[in-house]
Every structure is written in structure tokens, then in C-alpha cells.
Design a protein around this nucleic acid. Structure first.
Length: 510
RNA sequence: GCCGCGUUGGUCAAGGGGUUAAGACGCCUCCCUUUCACGGAGGAAUCACGGGUUCGAAUCCCGUACGUGGUACCA
């Protein structure tokens, strides 16, 4: 049987780091085994529907290079791939469970449920569950007579269908990451399977759809572990345990203080979503890795290694390498704290790995967005080659490459002013003259001219290079200074020197 | 509260009875570089705690602590 896995998000907002990692592990597993990766939209909660969220998910997956084989967009033989469009199929399964005695109708109103919780709440049990003991005291098809139930149903009385959890059974299953996991059924409540609006809850939908879509391996976040016994039982009742996919519950990704939230991102200044997401109601923007300046290769790479490794010292992987070495059973049990510093390191490594030509388009876009117009693409590649080892994020290119295309306006004169002397001013005036006369404008010739003149003036070249750098760059960074001069050209070099000299003169006398 | 899951340096982590307890990020020192990076050489954990089992435990078992998730007609 060929491997089929699925990622099943609900379109309620931004796509989280943990979500992307779940996609990634699904994707890697599918590719590793030559299987299919399916995307199913779990939009059964109409009250939480957010317009644009589904499109957003597709954009994120595309950027990450994790596109599904089957989805609402890509089609496939097991559609529709949105649960809202499959609504009609769920009821029959719920009814079958009722008929077989594994589920029941419950007519309790939200108010009655609230009363029940209030009534049975004690200090030692602050959150009473609708379970085997409570259900005997509620209005459902277990407590009402058959005629009463029929009458209520005929009158279209709002009702839900709940699973009837067995009283004293041990439910266990094999988790691919955690091994045997066991639950005592008495401690699990009678989860709603079909809501009053006719929509299934996650519990019913996930089982029915995984069955109908022939899912062989089901990976999801650890937060689902407590409801796993419900799902296992549903599989047993509906389709047989031998049909059930193999489960793997992925560890959580944690923030500095606990579960990673978009709050953490805002608080500590790092992105939490794959791409920018703006909440339409609050207008709140949550930053994405894409916008922050991450390469998708780096993003995927760092996520893969957050909770998994192949046992070797290798840390930098291409997607193909990940596919080749990924093994779900080597995924950790414990949650991993996300470290933005390490994330940046991955990005930096990936920028170093890339050829300038591969970086050209994204860097061009960044510069353009920063109001730096680049007309010479070949020049841009040269510049990228010179500065990329200094960039951890794509956004760093604005500073590291920007001065090649636009003269600095604000200069870090504070870096030279303390040691600025009239002798240096005289030197630079002379230097400008010499450079103006220079025949071949290449860095070696410029450097030679510069150093010879320094000797003539009995100044140390080293003491002059920093001022020269500030003149051309504006700050204490960037590649070799004569290299910069060569690239920006004679005219720009002289202009920048003159501009800077004027500022230094003014500021030194002030 | 109850239930589940987890716990190797600040972080990611290898190692699963006998090792000097890998490696990476970050941090610090030095070298290279008279900028900033890159690169190179070094420095800093006894494995949450307490009991067992064993000749021997980070590795197995049991408790405790801590963390984290669930406890909705949300997923």
C-alpha cells in the first residue's frame, strides 16, 4: 500500500512555525517513501472562518517548496478537500455509531451544559466533563425513552451526537515517536462528534476523512495526544483498527517562556509565521520569516532540525538531502525551544552557499524596496559576491550593498573625528588630486597611489584607511576599501571624498 | 484538580549499562584582517532530584520536582 499523509490545517489565521514543521515532516515522509502528500482544509467551525487564510496557507507552502500532491487547488481523486464541502458525508457515520450503540443523541442546550458544569464543579474537580457518570443525568438518548427521542428528533430539536466512551477499558496504540501510549477510557469525556449545525467536530471528521482519503500515516502536534483515544475508538467502531493509519504525535515548538505564540514573536523580536499575516479584525500584523529576510531553503532546513536529526553531525541540508535521510522515528519526544540566533545562523550559511546569481533577484527586490535603484545587473552580482558573507538576513543586503549604489548621506564621522588632524585633511586633498589624474581605475592602482602619497606625507596608510572607508561607505563595515572605490568609479569616489571632507572640516572646527 | 507527554551545558543536540559525555548556535580569549564580516585556534555541562537494580547508570525501574499539552457543539 502506498504511503499517503496529510496536513490538515484550519484556515483561521497565520501559519505557525510548528505548523510548517508539521507540513515539512509530512512532506519529507511522503517523499522518502515515494508516497503522496495531501492538504485538507479543516474548516468545520464556521464561526472561526477567516477569509484569505486558505490562500495564505497555499502561498506559504509554495514559498517553502512544500506543495501538496492533492489539495483543493491541485485536485486529486479523493476530493473535495475542504471539509465544509464534505459536510453531507459525516452524518451517516455518526448515525451508524448511534445505531451500533457507540454514540448517542444529546439534546442539552449550551445553557444546560453550563449549568451542569457549574453544578458539579468542586475544588477537586474544577472542570467537570460530560462523561460516563454525568451523561446519566443529562438529556440524551440514553436517559430519555425511545419515544421521547423520536419525538424530539421529529421536531428537529437541536442536538449533537456524542461518542459513548466505554467505562473501564484501556485504549492503547503505537505512536511512531512515543511507542505505546495508553489511556483509561473512564477518564475521557463523551466528545461531541456531530455538532448541532450538522458539521462534524474534528474528532469525527479526522477519522472519516483519513479513512476515505486512504491516509496511511497521520502526523500531528502533540496537543492532540489527549484526544487520541477517541480517535482510536472511532476507528475501531467505524472501520476497524487494521485500517487505522499509524500515528505520530510531534513535539511542540516552544518559545522563550513556554508554548511558542505570536506574542513571543512580538515580544522578543523574531518572526513566528512563515509569511506576514495581518489579522483583519485587529489589524495586527504578525511578521513572517519571508519578510524578515529568510531564504526558504534555510527556513526549511532549520525547521527540519528542530526536533529531528539523523544522528550525524550534518546540519546543512538541501531538500533532497532531507528527503533522503528523514526518519520519523528519530523525531524527538520532547519539545524544542526555538532559538532565533541559531535560525539566523542557518540563513547565513545558506546565503554563503548560494551563488551571487541565485541571490540576485531577491536582493534586487530588497534594494528596490529600500529605494535603491539598480540598473546594472552584472554589477549587482559582483557586489553580492563581495558582501554576501556579511549578511545573515536578506535584509542585511540593504546596508551591506546599498552604498555601492547610493552615496552615504549620514557619515559615521565620530569614528574618525577623535584622531582627525590637519595633516590628514591635507593628505586627502592631495589624494583627491592624485586620484583624479589616475589613468587606470582599478583597486591595485588606487591602493598604490594612496599608499605612496601617504608615505610622501609621512603618514601611516593604516591611519588613513578608516577615514577613507567612512568617506566611501559611511560606516565601519564593508569589503576592502579600494575594491569599493574601483566599483563605484572615479567620479563617485571623488564626490564622496569631497562631501566627507567638507563635513569633517566643519565638525572638526565646531 | 484530573489526565497525557516530556526532562543531557543558556539554546539545538549525539550518545540508550563501562566514552576524556560528540557536534552546532550563542558567549569569552587569541590569530588572520590597520573596517565589519568570513576563516582558523582555544575556553566554559557529570546528564532535574531522590531512591533502587547492577561489579558498574546519563543510559534500566520506581518515586518526587519542574515544564508542557489537554480537560469546548475550537481545531
Amino acid at each position: 500500500m502506498s504511503v499517503r499523509v496529510r496536513f490538515a490545517p484550519s484556515p483561521t489565521g497565520g501559519l505557525h512555525l510548528g505548523g510548517v514543521r508539521t507540513v515539512l515532516y509530512n512532506y519529507l515522509f511522503a517523499r522518502h517513501h515515494g508516497g503522496e502528500f495531501i492538504l485538507r482544509i479543516e474548516d468545520t467551525d464556521q464561526s472561526r472562518f477567516v477569509p484569505g487564510a486558505e490562500e495564505y496557507i497555499f502561498r506559504c507552502l509554495k514559498w517553502c517548496g512544500l506543495e501538496p500532491d492533492e489539495s483543493p487547488l491541485h485536485g486529486g481523486d479523493y476530493g473535495p478537500y475542504r471539509q465544509s464541502e464534505r459536510k453531507e458525508q459525516y452524518r451517516q457515520y455518526a448515525e451508524k455509531l448511534v445505531a451500533d450503540g457507540f454514540a448517542y443523541y444529546a439534546f442539552d442546550t449550551p445553557e444546560e451544559l453550563e449549568q451542569m458544569r457549574e453544578h458539579y464543579k468542586t475544588e477537586s474537580n474544577p472542570a467537570p466533563q460530560y462523561d460516563h457518570s454525568i451523561r446519566k443525568k443529562m438529556r440524551n438518548s440514553l436517559t430519555l425513552t425511545r419515544d421521547e427521542v423520536i419525538a424530539l428528533l421529529e421536531k428537529n430539536t437541536p442536538h449533537v451526537i456524542r461518542i459513548r466512551m466505554p467505562e473501564n477499558e484501556l485504549v492503547s496504540f503505537q505512536d511512531m515517536i512515543r511507542g505505546t501510549v495508553e489511556f483509561q477510557t473512564s477518564l475521557v469525556d463523551d466528545k461531541v462528534l456531530l455538532k448541532a449545525d450538522g458539521m462534524p467536530t474534528y474528532h469525527l471528521a479526522v477519522v472519516v476523512d483519513d479513512y476515505l482519503m486512504k491516509i496511511t500515516h497521520a502526523f500531528r502536534g502533540e496537543e492532540w495526544l489527549p484526544s487520541a483515544p477517541v480517535h482510536v475508538l472511532l476507528w475501531k467502531y467505524l472501520f476497524g483498527l487494521d485500517q487505522m493509519p499509524q500515528w505520530a504525535h510531534l513535539p511542540l515548538i516552544l518559545g522563550p517562556g513556554g508554548k511558542l505564540s505570536k506574542r513571543d514573536g512580538a515580544k522578543y523580536g523574531f518572526p513566528v509565521y512563515a509569511m506576514n499575516w495581518t489579522d483583519l479584525k485587529t489589524n495586527e500584523l504578525t511578521e513572517g520569516f519571508y519578510e524578515r529576510g529568510f531564504l526558504p531553503e534555510a527556513f526549511v532546513n532549520l525547521l527540519a532540525l528542530l526536533g529531528w536529526n539523523d544522528g550525524t553531525e550534518k546540519e546543512l541540508y538541501t531538500m533532497d538531502e532531507l528527503i533522503a535521510s528523514f526518519d520519523i522515528e528519530r523525531v524527538h519526544k520532547g519539545g524544542a525551544k526555538f532559538d532565533f540566533e541559531k535560525a539566523k545562523w542557518f540563513n547565513q550559511e545558506w546565503i554563503k552557499l548560494k551563488q551571487p546569481s541565485e541571490l540576485r533577484d531577491v536582493v534586487y527586490a530588497r534594494l528596490l524596496a529600500a529605494d535603491l535603484k539598480v540598473t546594472d545587473q552584472a554589477l549587482l552580482e559582483t557586489v553580492i559576491g563581495l558582501v554576501k558573507d556579511r549578511c545573515a538576513l536578506l535584509s542585511d543586503f540593504v546596508q551591506q550593498a546599498g552604498f555601492f549604489f547610493k552615496a552615504p548621506v549620514v557619515l559615521d564621522t565620530a569614528a574618525v573625528l577623535p584622531k582627525w588632524t590637519e595633516a590628514k585633511a591635507v593628505f586627502f586633498e592631495a589624494c583627491m588630486q592624485r586620484l583624479k589624474e589616475l589613468q587606470s581605475w582599478d583597486h591595485a592602482a588606487i591602493e598604490e597611489t594612496f599608499k605612496n602619497l601617504a608615505a610622501d606625507h609621512q603618514l601611516k596608510p593604516g591611519d588613513l584607511q578608516l577615514p577613507m572607508r567612512i568617506m566611501l561607505v559611511g560606516g565601519k563595515f564593508g569589503p576592502a576599501v579600494f575594491q569599493i572605490a574601483e566599483i563605484i568609479g572615479k567620479a563617485a569616489t571623488l564626490e564622496r571624498m569631497e562631501y566627507a571632507l567638507r563635513q569633517l572640516r566643519d565638525q572638526a572646527s565646531a
